[in-house]
Simulated scan of single mutants.
Amino acid sequence: MSDDYFDEGRTARLTYWGLAQMLKGAGYAAAFLLAIGILLGAIYAVGLLLPEESKQAPSPYGALDAPQTVQAHRLA
């Protein structure tokens, strides 16, 4: 049996290294997205444990939603 079956050339070695680096980056991205999903799931679970009265409070942004009244000025 020939030993050059497992002998990689320069191009193959560079290709495998590039593929490994891309897979490593994809793994980091998947772990990051999984961590964000777990964090959002934990926040949602805490929200489900809150009493119903806390979910019916008035909006703290009520002043921003208030209609603006414009008074006319007489320039003459």
Rank of each mutant, 00 (worst) to 15 (best):
residue 1 M to A: 14
residue 3 D to I: 05
residue 3 D to T: 11
residue 3 D to S: 14
residue 3 D to Y: 12
residue 3 D to Q: 12
residue 4 D to K: 11
residue 5 Y to W: 11
residue 5 Y to M: 12
residue 6 F to C: 03
residue 6 F to D: 15
residue 7 D to V: 10
residue 8 E to F: 12
residue 8 E to A: 09
residue 8 E to C: 04
residue 8 E to G: 00
residue 9 G to K: 01
residue 10 R to Y: 08
residue 10 R to H: 06
residue 11 T to A: 14
residue 11 T to C: 01
residue 12 A to I: 12
residue 12 A to E: 13
residue 13 R to K: 10
residue 13 R to E: 13
residue 13 R to A: 15
residue 13 R to W: 03
residue 13 R to Y: 03
residue 14 L to T: 11
residue 14 L to V: 05
residue 14 L to C: 02
residue 14 L to P: 01
residue 14 L to R: 12
residue 15 T to D: 04
residue 15 T to M: 05
residue 15 T to Y: 01
residue 16 Y to F: 08
residue 16 Y to E: 15
residue 16 Y to Q: 15
residue 16 Y to W: 06
residue 16 Y to T: 15
residue 17 W to R: 15
residue 18 G to W: 06
residue 20 A to T: 11
residue 20 A to I: 06
residue 20 A to C: 06
residue 20 A to S: 13
residue 21 Q to E: 12
residue 22 M to I: 15
residue 23 L to I: 09
residue 24 K to W: 14
residue 24 K to I: 10
residue 24 K to C: 08
residue 26 A to Q: 10
residue 26 A to C: 09
residue 26 A to T: 13
residue 27 G to P: 00
residue 27 G to W: 04
residue 28 Y to F: 15
residue 29 A to M: 07
residue 29 A to G: 06
residue 30 A to G: 04
residue 30 A to S: 08
residue 30 A to E: 05
residue 31 A to P: 02
residue 31 A to M: 07
residue 32 F to E: 09
residue 32 F to C: 03
residue 33 L to F: 09
residue 34 L to W: 05
residue 34 L to I: 09
residue 35 A to W: 09
residue 36 I to M: 11
residue 36 I to L: 13
residue 37 G to Q: 08
residue 38 I to S: 03
residue 39 L to H: 06
residue 40 L to A: 10
residue 40 L to R: 14
residue 41 G to L: 04
residue 41 G to Y: 02
residue 41 G to T: 03
residue 42 A to G: 08
residue 42 A to M: 08
residue 42 A to K: 04
residue 42 A to V: 14
residue 42 A to H: 07
residue 43 I to V: 15
residue 43 I to L: 09
residue 43 I to Y: 03
residue 43 I to K: 03
residue 44 Y to H: 11
residue 44 Y to Q: 09
residue 44 Y to P: 00
residue 45 A to R: 03
residue 46 V to P: 00
residue 46 V to T: 07
residue 46 V to K: 04
residue 47 G to L: 02
residue 47 G to Q: 04
residue 47 G to D: 07
residue 48 L to W: 10
residue 49 L to Q: 09
residue 49 L to K: 02
residue 49 L to V: 11
residue 50 L to N: 04
residue 51 P to Y: 00
residue 52 E to S: 10
residue 52 E to D: 12
residue 52 E to R: 05
residue 53 E to C: 02
residue 53 E to F: 02
residue 54 S to Y: 07
residue 54 S to D: 08
residue 54 S to M: 10
residue 55 K to Y: 00
residue 55 K to C: 00
residue 55 K to A: 02
residue 56 Q to H: 11
residue 57 A to S: 06
residue 57 A to I: 11
residue 58 P to C: 01
residue 58 P to L: 02
residue 58 P to E: 04
residue 58 P to R: 01
residue 59 S to L: 01
residue 61 Y to H: 03
residue 62 G to S: 07
residue 62 G to A: 10
residue 66 A to Y: 00
residue 67 P to K: 04
residue 67 P to D: 07
residue 67 P to S: 05
residue 68 Q to L: 14
residue 69 T to G: 01
residue 69 T to I: 12
residue 70 V to Q: 06
residue 70 V to T: 12
residue 70 V to G: 00
residue 72 A to K: 14
residue 72 A to T: 12
residue 72 A to I: 13
residue 74 R to S: 11
residue 74 R to G: 10
residue 75 L to F: 09
residue 75 L to E: 13
residue 76 A to Y: 02
residue 76 A to S: 14
residue 76 A to C: 09
residue 76 A to E: 13
